[in-house]
Design a protein around this nucleic acid. Structure first.
Length: 667
DNA sequence: GAGCACTGC
């Protein structure tokens, strides 16, 4: 446990709040005089920002940076947050005239980061967003032909590889936040190496420069993987931070978090407290404890207000953390790791870190995912800033990369679509285990995305075009023959969010009650369709959503996904409006084309279900509308291991449908 | 009759 002064959580955007953002102003409605004023203002802002740029630690290194990029194919740049590397590196290269034959791409693992960096840099070079500087994230692309500096999510660059295998648009690719080791960045490492080689060997192509940017830890590993010795270290900014450690490990982290925060409250000067906890349950328990403690405080003490922060919380409640604490109060924010990278809160002076987080692991043997509480890595702790010293030394240096612990089916299909036939021998920075790879290949083979030689099929190539897990893409393509594409698009979109419902703990019964009117006897998938239909009848009205415990933010995402899938289907000559009307039997049969392995048969007696593929005993999750319903045969989209193996998103099927199902599948 | 870290296309 520790408490300390905390620096801003923002990376390179320390001053962005002080800068008026005018990049979103529409130019169309301005008259000529206004237009001139507007251009002048952009110019003025860029001038003012020049001062800020010169104060960044990376400014002193700019000549060296440009020189090493000129002299090397690949370089590693390390630097802590606030060094300015993400905003300045592309500008230095641009100003040095290094990119006459293509643009600069800079990838980020998160959308918000890509967007805010692009806005910031657009202001700095005095350009309108979407002109010389732009960004590209899912559902939102502001880049144009004029764009020379493009910020994009790692997933977007992966998608661009499908249509532009040599990335010829770009002269420089910068992979930022490399230490985070998302599955997508890990694949990009191998792919940019290949693209670099391919362009070197093809005299008609210009060479590709690669810059890997990461936190200081582990730069050597990147250097040897990329066969370079060029590591440029940028000093970070200095912040007055004091770290207080607990002398002994804390067995009960929740109790320790409670004691530490209340001690800070009684002994330390005003300033808000941010507490990192692994999940919603702990957050809610600790809130109760703190509120109770608050009632015991003498009237002359600061009052405590609590704020909760986790991803599943509706947006209005999330934004409460940004309200400044009223005079005479101290705000205690109880958060998951959403506050580690994604959200910046002003006014926080103390951080209490339990050092725990939840991590998803995929068990390839049984094909189940589970979520467990684990110790965070040093990378993470540094981000959260320090913690009990003894425990810190015991921590793993880095979080285990995603590629070693997640389901690889979709990423393997993408590699196959890139023309990598032998995915076992792909040049991974860290290779995933054989069993994870085998499981992914098997799944793709069963879906007929791969043939028995492991080569990608026409169907597999089509599937890879969709931003969906392979089974969903398969169902979508199968829906063309079965004339139910409209319904499948809806279902697949609805399944793209964690939950379309919101159920606050204190209103659980009301939430369940409101859900009843949507319930279909055929199970969860058709129930979701009913919710979507009603949501659209009410035009997405916020009050309707609240009344019915429907998560508006997630529904908006559903609508966005649907729009994208409709566009993709149209482009691929799959009519997105073909409908089975309300022939749900046909619809569920179609879903079975992707999920036939995910079916289970009710066991005699009270022994749950037996999964068809693996013969293991599985149970209907209590959140399902089919819980306790004793259906003869069911199909599910997800199997999770918690206290038992549970099936989620469960539908009624007939066991007779399973006979000969694989011969019915698309070739 | 259980349990819902966080991203991304």
């Amino acid at each position: 446990m520790k408490s300390k002064r905390r620096r801003s959580l923002a990376d390179d955007n320390l001053e962005s709040s002080k800068i008026p953002n005018i990049t979103n102003v529409s130019n169309k409605r301005l008259n000529k005089k206004q237009k001139n004023n507007y251009d002048l203002e952009i110019h003025n802002i860029a001038q003012r920002l020049k001062g800020f740029r010169k104060e960044l630690p990376i400014w002193k290194e700019r000549k060296k940076l440009v020189q090493v990029v000129k002299e090397n194919e690949t370089i590693i740049v390390t630097g802590e947050m606030g060094s300015g590397k993400s905003t300045q590196t592309p500008q230095f290269l641009l100003e040095a005239g290094l990119i006459s034959n293509g643009a600069i791409a800079l990838t980020q693992p998160r959308r918000v980061a890509a967007i805010s960096l692009a806005k910031r840099v657009a202001n700095e070079i005095g350009s309108k967003l979407g002109q010389r500087v732009g960004y590209s994230v899912r559902f939102d692309d502001t880049s144009s032909r004029a764009t020379v500096i493009k910020y994009l999510t790692d997933g977007m660059l992966l998608r661009e590889l499908l249509s532009d295998p040599l990335l010829l648009k770009y002269a420089v690719i910068i992979l930022d936040e490399a230490h985070e080791r998302t599955m997508r960045t890990d694949i990009l490492f191998g792919m940019v190496k290949r693209v670099q080689d391919a362009r070197k060997n093809d005299k008609s192509c210009s060479p590709l420069k690669v810059v890997i940017m990461s936190a200081t830890l582990n730069s050597q590993k990147f250097a040897s993987y990329f066969n370079t010795t060029m590591i440029l270290q940028i000093p970070g900014r200095q912040f007055p931070v004091s770290v207080n450690y607990s002398f002994v490990p804390q067995p009960d982290y929740l109790d320790a978090a409670f004691t530490t925060s209340t001690q800070i409250h009684t002994n330390q000067p005003p300033g808000d407290i941010l507490v990192f906890l692994p999940g919603q349950e702990d957050i809610e328990i600790l809130e109760k404890l703190i509120i109770e403690y608050g009632t015991t405080l003498p009237p002359d003490k600061l009052k405590i207000i609590t704020c909760l922060l986790f991803a599943a919380l509706p947006t209005e409640q999330q934004t409460k953390v940004f309200d400044p604490s009223p005079p005479g109060t101290r705000k205690i924010i109880l958060a998951t790791n959403i506050a580690e990278t994604s959200i910046t809160i002003n006014g926080v002076r103390y951080v209490v870190d339990t050092g725990k987080c939840k991590m998803k692991k995929f068990n390839s043997r049984v094909g189940m995912e589970s979520l467990s509480i684990v110790n965070i890595s040093k990378d993470s702790a540094d981000q959260r800033m320090g913690r009990a010293e003894e425990e810190y030394n015991k921590m793993e240096k880095n979080t285990e990369p995603e590629i070693k612990r997640c389901n690889l089916a979709s990423i393997i299909l993408l590699l196959k679509a890139f023309g990598i036939d032998n995915v076992l021998e792909f040049d991974y920075l860290d290779a995933p285990s054989r069993s994870l790879l085998k499981r992914a290949l098997e799944q793709l083979f069963i879906l007929k995305a791969l043939n028995n030689q492991g080569k990608i099929t026409d169907l597999g190539r089509k599937m890879s075009e969709f931003p969906l897990e392979p089974a969903y893409a398969k169902v979508l393509i199968a829906s063309e023959q079965m004339s139910c594409t409209r319904e499948v698009i809806n279902i697949v979109s609805l399944l793209s969010v964690d939950s379309i419902f919101f159920s606050p703990q204190d209103q659980r019964d009301q939430a369940l009650d409101m859900k009843k009117k949507f319930i279909s006897p055929l199970g969860d998938l058709i129930t979701y369709l009913n919710v979507l239909r009603s949501y659209e009848t009410h035009k997405g009205d916020l009050d309707w959503c609240k009344q019915n415990f429907v998560n508006k933010r997630n529904m908006k995402h559903v609508i966005n996904v649907r729009k994208q899938l409709i566009q993709l289907c149209t482009r691929m000559n799959i009519s997105p409006s073909s409908t089975c009307c309300e022939n749900y039997e046909l619809l569920l049969k179609c879903m079975l084309c992707g999920f036939f392995r995910n079916s289970a048969i009710l066991q005699p007696g009270n022994n749950g279900y037996k999964a068809v593929g693996s013969n293991q005993v599985v149970n209907v999750h209590p959140s399902s509308t089919l819980f306790n319903k004793k259906i003869e045969a069911v199909m599910y989209t997800e199997l999770v291991l918690t206290s038992k193996p549970y099936m989620k998103n469960v539908s009624v099927i007939q066991s007779s449908w399973l006979v000969g199902i694989s011969s019915n599948l698309l070739e």
